[in-house]
């Protein structure tokens, strides 16, 4: 499981001691209530559903409420294959989510096109060409345990956030603008 280094190059806010306690509390609440967006694309979505369902029970970690609307979700699990027809929608959904927002790329297809990388003319070779990704979960499809682990990684990332730090917002690469 790869995770992106938390990027906080801003020296002004990097070591603000005063805010750490507040940061800790807020980050703890955020990390323990990661609401994913109901956003399934393909096979991985079934495993995502399985993660939320009886045996694996994502709700134990506070991530139970799958929200139908991007406005109320914190985490976008891109589960399945992103195609060129779908890419503008993925981007739009990402834009509609309120900050702070996180993206998990679940499965081979969203990481680098998976089995469709060579001949899949209509497949976007990695969702990070469209939106920035925080955690990658390889697998085809990844097991529910892998998704849980991915969510833990996101929680770790969340615990490193600084609320004064606005760089997260600005450093998001504007890779792609839908036409």
């Amino acid at each position: 499981m790869t995770e992106i280094e938390n990027r906080n190059p801003d020296p002004l806010t990097k070591n603000v001691v005063l805010m750490t306690a507040v940061d800790d509390i807020i980050n703890a609440t955020r990390a323990n209530s990661v609401w994913p967006l109901t956003f399934g694309l393909a096979c991985c979505a079934i495993e995502m559903m399985a993660t939320g369902a009886a045996k694996y029970d994502l709700d134990r970690f506070g991530s139970g409420p799958f929200r139908g609307t991007p406005r109320q979700s914190d985490l976008m699990v891109v589960a399945g294959t992103v195609t060129h027809k779908m890419a503008p929608r993925v981007k739009r959904l990402y834009d509609q989510m309120p900050e702070p927002k996180y993206v998990i790329a679940m499965g081979g297809c969203v990481i680098r096109g998976g089995p469709y990388v060579k001949h899949g003319y209509h497949v976007v070779k990695g969702v990070d060409l469209v939106i920035p990704v925080d955690v990658y979960i390889p697998g085809c499809p990844p097991r529910p345990e892998a998704l849980l682990e991915g969510i833990f990684k996101v929680q770790k990332l969340m615990k490193r956030e600084k609320i004064l730090d606005r760089t997260r917002r600005t450093t998001k690469p504007e890779v792609y603008q839908p036409v």
């Binding site: 060129h84 890419a87 070779k125």
Partner: peptide, 10 residues
């Protein structure tokens, strides 16, 4: 590429 998204990566 299609609408600015690189399509052929290999």
């Amino acid at each position: 590429s299609f609408h600015g998204i690189k399509n052929v990566i290999y």
